[in-house]
Amino acid sequence: MSSRDRIFATLRAGLKHTVDDPARPQAVTERINRRTPNLVPQRAQIPHAEQVALFTAKVEALTVTVDSVPSEQDVPGKVADYLARHNLPSQLRVSPDPLLQNLPWSERPMLQVDYGGGRSQDLVSVTPAFAGIAETGTLMLHSSTTTPTTLHFVPDHHIVVMRESQITGSLEDAFARLRDKLGTADKTAAENWPRTVNFVTGPSRTADIEGVPVLGAHGPRRLHIVLIADGTP
Protein backbone atom coordinates (compact mmCIF):
# COMPACT_ATOMS: atom_id res chain seq x y z
CA MET A 1 0.00 0.00 0.00
CA SER A 2 1.36 3.42 -0.96
CA SER A 3 1.68 6.33 1.49
CA ARG A 4 -1.25 8.01 -0.24
CA ASP A 5 -3.44 4.94 0.18
CA ARG A 6 -2.49 4.63 3.86
CA ILE A 7 -3.38 8.28 4.51
CA PHE A 8 -6.79 7.94 2.88
CA ALA A 9 -7.43 4.62 4.62
CA THR A 10 -6.71 6.27 7.98
CA LEU A 11 -9.06 9.15 7.16
CA ARG A 12 -11.83 6.78 6.09
CA ALA A 13 -11.40 4.73 9.27
CA GLY A 14 -11.61 7.85 11.42
CA LEU A 15 -14.76 8.98 9.62
CA LYS A 16 -16.16 5.44 9.61
CA HIS A 17 -16.53 5.51 5.81
CA THR A 18 -15.97 2.68 3.37
CA VAL A 19 -14.51 2.90 -0.13
CA ASP A 20 -17.64 1.72 -1.93
CA ASP A 21 -20.29 3.53 0.13
CA PRO A 22 -22.91 4.52 -2.54
CA ALA A 23 -24.39 7.21 -0.29
CA ARG A 24 -21.25 9.35 -0.31
CA PRO A 25 -21.17 10.29 -4.04
CA GLN A 26 -24.90 11.03 -3.86
CA ALA A 27 -24.38 13.30 -0.83
CA VAL A 28 -21.59 15.17 -2.59
CA THR A 29 -23.72 15.63 -5.72
CA GLU A 30 -26.64 16.97 -3.70
CA ARG A 31 -24.42 19.38 -1.77
CA ILE A 32 -22.83 20.76 -4.96
CA ASN A 33 -26.19 21.22 -6.65
CA ARG A 34 -27.69 22.88 -3.56
CA ARG A 35 -24.72 25.31 -3.14
CA THR A 36 -26.35 27.75 -0.73
CA PRO A 37 -24.61 31.16 -1.13
CA ASN A 38 -22.50 32.41 1.73
CA LEU A 39 -22.76 35.92 3.16
CA VAL A 40 -22.26 38.46 0.33
CA PRO A 41 -20.94 41.91 1.38
CA GLN A 42 -23.08 44.85 0.25
CA ARG A 43 -20.12 47.05 -0.72
CA ALA A 44 -19.78 45.36 -4.11
CA GLN A 45 -23.50 44.99 -4.87
CA ILE A 46 -23.45 48.11 -7.02
CA PRO A 47 -23.92 48.93 -10.73
CA HIS A 48 -21.37 47.24 -12.97
CA ALA A 49 -19.58 50.47 -13.94
CA GLU A 50 -19.00 51.13 -10.23
CA GLN A 51 -17.77 47.54 -9.77
CA VAL A 52 -15.15 48.17 -12.48
CA ALA A 53 -14.04 51.36 -10.71
CA LEU A 54 -13.94 49.57 -7.33
CA PHE A 55 -11.94 46.66 -8.77
CA THR A 56 -9.43 49.06 -10.34
CA ALA A 57 -9.04 51.02 -7.10
CA LYS A 58 -8.58 47.85 -5.06
CA VAL A 59 -5.89 46.34 -7.31
CA GLU A 60 -3.99 49.62 -7.59
CA ALA A 61 -3.94 49.85 -3.78
CA LEU A 62 -2.16 46.47 -3.88
CA THR A 63 0.65 47.87 -6.14
CA VAL A 64 -0.90 46.33 -9.26
CA THR A 65 -0.69 48.52 -12.36
CA VAL A 66 -3.66 48.83 -14.71
CA ASP A 67 -4.03 49.98 -18.31
CA SER A 68 -7.55 50.48 -19.64
CA VAL A 69 -7.96 50.14 -23.40
CA PRO A 70 -11.02 50.70 -25.64
CA SER A 71 -10.60 47.48 -27.65
CA GLU A 72 -8.56 44.30 -28.07
CA GLN A 73 -6.63 45.98 -30.89
CA ASP A 74 -4.87 48.17 -28.31
CA VAL A 75 -3.60 45.35 -26.09
CA PRO A 76 -0.26 44.58 -27.86
CA GLY A 77 0.71 48.25 -27.70
CA LYS A 78 0.07 48.39 -23.94
CA VAL A 79 2.05 45.19 -23.43
CA ALA A 80 4.95 46.69 -25.41
CA ASP A 81 4.72 49.87 -23.30
CA TYR A 82 4.93 47.79 -20.12
CA LEU A 83 8.06 46.01 -21.32
CA ALA A 84 9.70 49.32 -22.25
CA ARG A 85 8.74 50.91 -18.94
CA HIS A 86 10.48 48.15 -16.99
CA ASN A 87 13.41 47.72 -19.40
CA LEU A 88 12.41 44.13 -20.16
CA PRO A 89 13.28 42.03 -23.22
CA SER A 90 10.63 41.60 -25.90
CA GLN A 91 10.05 37.88 -25.30
CA LEU A 92 6.57 36.93 -24.07
CA ARG A 93 5.33 33.54 -22.89
CA VAL A 94 1.62 33.61 -23.66
CA SER A 95 -1.32 31.35 -22.78
CA PRO A 96 -2.62 29.53 -25.88
CA ASP A 97 -6.05 30.99 -25.15
CA PRO A 98 -8.34 32.18 -28.00
CA LEU A 99 -8.56 35.73 -26.60
CA LEU A 100 -4.78 36.10 -26.64
CA GLN A 101 -4.14 34.17 -29.85
CA ASN A 102 -6.51 36.47 -31.73
CA LEU A 103 -4.81 39.68 -30.62
CA PRO A 104 -3.01 41.64 -33.40
CA TRP A 105 0.50 40.85 -32.17
CA SER A 106 1.83 41.35 -35.72
CA GLU A 107 1.25 45.08 -35.35
CA ARG A 108 4.13 45.03 -32.85
CA PRO A 109 6.73 43.02 -34.83
CA MET A 110 9.41 43.57 -32.17
CA LEU A 111 7.44 41.44 -29.72
CA GLN A 112 8.42 37.77 -29.70
CA VAL A 113 5.28 35.82 -28.79
CA ASP A 114 5.68 32.21 -27.73
CA TYR A 115 2.73 30.09 -26.58
CA GLY A 116 2.88 27.45 -23.87
CA GLY A 117 3.33 26.83 -20.14
CA GLY A 118 5.63 28.83 -17.90
CA ARG A 119 9.34 27.95 -17.78
CA SER A 120 12.15 29.02 -15.46
CA GLN A 121 13.72 31.19 -18.18
CA ASP A 122 10.52 33.18 -18.84
CA LEU A 123 10.55 36.72 -17.44
CA VAL A 124 7.11 37.83 -18.66
CA SER A 125 3.88 35.88 -19.02
CA VAL A 126 0.61 37.04 -20.56
CA THR A 127 -2.56 35.24 -19.52
CA PRO A 128 -6.31 35.76 -19.42
CA ALA A 129 -8.29 35.69 -16.17
CA PHE A 130 -11.65 34.06 -15.60
CA ALA A 131 -12.94 36.88 -13.38
CA GLY A 132 -11.99 39.94 -11.40
CA ILE A 133 -13.62 40.29 -7.97
CA ALA A 134 -14.42 43.91 -7.12
CA GLU A 135 -14.88 43.58 -3.35
CA THR A 136 -11.22 42.58 -2.82
CA GLY A 137 -9.41 43.35 -6.07
CA THR A 138 -8.78 39.64 -6.61
CA LEU A 139 -8.19 37.77 -9.87
CA MET A 140 -9.83 34.37 -10.33
CA LEU A 141 -7.64 32.10 -12.49
CA HIS A 142 -8.29 28.48 -13.34
CA SER A 143 -6.18 25.83 -14.99
CA SER A 144 -6.94 24.30 -18.39
CA THR A 145 -5.14 23.18 -21.52
CA THR A 146 -5.22 26.80 -22.75
CA THR A 147 -4.44 28.45 -19.41
CA PRO A 148 -1.44 26.66 -17.84
CA THR A 149 -1.14 27.49 -14.14
CA THR A 150 2.65 27.76 -14.41
CA LEU A 151 2.22 31.03 -16.30
CA HIS A 152 0.55 32.52 -13.21
CA PHE A 153 3.44 31.80 -10.87
CA VAL A 154 6.77 31.12 -12.60
CA PRO A 155 7.71 34.35 -14.49
CA ASP A 156 8.71 37.49 -12.57
CA HIS A 157 6.20 39.64 -14.47
CA HIS A 158 2.59 38.57 -14.95
CA ILE A 159 0.42 40.51 -17.42
CA VAL A 160 -3.30 39.70 -17.30
CA VAL A 161 -5.59 40.60 -20.19
CA MET A 162 -9.28 40.66 -19.33
CA ARG A 163 -12.55 42.36 -20.25
CA GLU A 164 -14.51 44.70 -18.00
CA SER A 165 -17.49 42.35 -18.40
CA GLN A 166 -15.52 39.69 -16.49
CA ILE A 167 -15.55 41.78 -13.31
CA THR A 168 -18.01 40.59 -10.66
CA GLY A 169 -19.06 42.07 -7.37
CA SER A 170 -18.21 39.20 -5.03
CA LEU A 171 -16.48 35.86 -4.76
CA GLU A 172 -19.89 34.15 -4.78
CA ASP A 173 -20.72 35.87 -8.09
CA ALA A 174 -17.45 34.66 -9.63
CA PHE A 175 -18.08 31.06 -8.57
CA ALA A 176 -21.62 31.25 -9.95
CA ARG A 177 -20.17 32.24 -13.32
CA LEU A 178 -17.69 29.37 -13.17
CA ARG A 179 -20.49 26.90 -12.51
CA ASP A 180 -22.54 28.38 -15.34
CA LYS A 181 -19.59 27.94 -17.70
CA LEU A 182 -18.42 24.50 -16.66
CA GLY A 183 -21.56 22.80 -15.38
CA THR A 184 -22.56 21.24 -12.08
CA ALA A 185 -21.93 17.82 -10.60
CA ASP A 186 -22.88 15.36 -13.34
CA LYS A 187 -20.07 13.22 -14.71
CA THR A 188 -19.71 14.97 -18.06
CA ALA A 189 -19.54 18.42 -16.51
CA ALA A 190 -17.17 17.27 -13.77
CA GLU A 191 -14.66 16.28 -16.43
CA ASN A 192 -14.59 19.91 -17.57
CA TRP A 193 -13.81 21.33 -14.15
CA PRO A 194 -10.27 22.64 -13.67
CA ARG A 195 -7.79 20.88 -11.45
CA THR A 196 -6.98 24.20 -9.76
CA VAL A 197 -8.72 27.51 -9.19
CA ASN A 198 -6.33 30.19 -7.96
CA PHE A 199 -7.13 33.54 -6.40
CA VAL A 200 -4.46 36.21 -6.84
CA THR A 201 -4.62 39.45 -4.88
CA GLY A 202 -1.64 41.57 -5.89
CA PRO A 203 1.95 40.52 -6.59
CA SER A 204 3.52 37.69 -4.61
CA ARG A 205 4.81 38.91 -1.26
CA THR A 206 5.78 37.55 2.13
CA ALA A 207 7.22 38.82 5.40
CA ASP A 208 8.03 35.42 6.90
CA ILE A 209 11.69 36.23 7.52
CA GLU A 210 12.20 38.83 10.28
CA GLY A 211 9.00 40.60 9.25
CA VAL A 212 10.64 42.17 6.19
CA PRO A 213 8.31 42.29 3.15
CA VAL A 214 9.78 40.55 0.09
CA LEU A 215 8.19 40.64 -3.37
CA GLY A 216 8.30 37.64 -5.69
CA ALA A 217 8.95 34.97 -3.06
CA HIS A 218 6.23 32.60 -4.26
CA GLY A 219 5.28 34.06 -7.64
CA PRO A 220 5.57 37.19 -9.81
CA ARG A 221 7.05 40.30 -8.26
CA ARG A 222 4.97 42.50 -10.55
CA LEU A 223 1.38 42.16 -11.71
CA HIS A 224 -0.08 44.26 -14.53
CA ILE A 225 -3.65 44.19 -15.86
CA VAL A 226 -4.77 45.31 -19.32
CA LEU A 227 -8.50 45.92 -19.01
CA ILE A 228 -10.56 45.94 -22.21
CA ALA A 229 -13.62 48.19 -22.09
CA ASP A 230 -16.53 46.10 -23.37
CA GLY A 231 -19.44 47.26 -21.24
CA THR A 232 -21.54 45.27 -18.83
CA PRO A 233 -21.71 41.44 -18.85
Rank of each mutant, 00 (worst) to 15 (best):
L215W: 11
I46Y: 05
R6D: 14
Q73L: 11
F175G: 02
R222N: 10
T232N: 11
E172T: 15
G117L: 06
I225G: 01
L88Q: 12
E191R: 14
D122G: 01
L151S: 05
F130S: 05
V69S: 09
I32H: 11
P98Y: 12
F8R: 11
V94Y: 01
V197T: 15
D173H: 13
H152E: 08
A134F: 08
P98R: 11
M162E: 00
N102K: 13
S2H: 09
L171V: 15
E50P: 01
I159C: 03
D5V: 00
E30I: 06
P128C: 13
V126W: 02
G169F: 02
S170R: 08
A61M: 10
E191Q: 12
P89L: 05
E30M: 09
T201L: 02
T168P: 01
M1P: 07
A80M: 01
T149L: 01
M1E: 08
S120W: 10
P203W: 05
V154W: 03
D74F: 08
L223G: 03
F199G: 03
S3K: 14
P76V: 09
S144G: 15
D180M: 13
K181V: 14
F8K: 07
P203H: 06
G118T: 08
P213L: 14
L62T: 08
D81S: 10
R31S: 13
G77A: 15
V113I: 12
P76F: 09
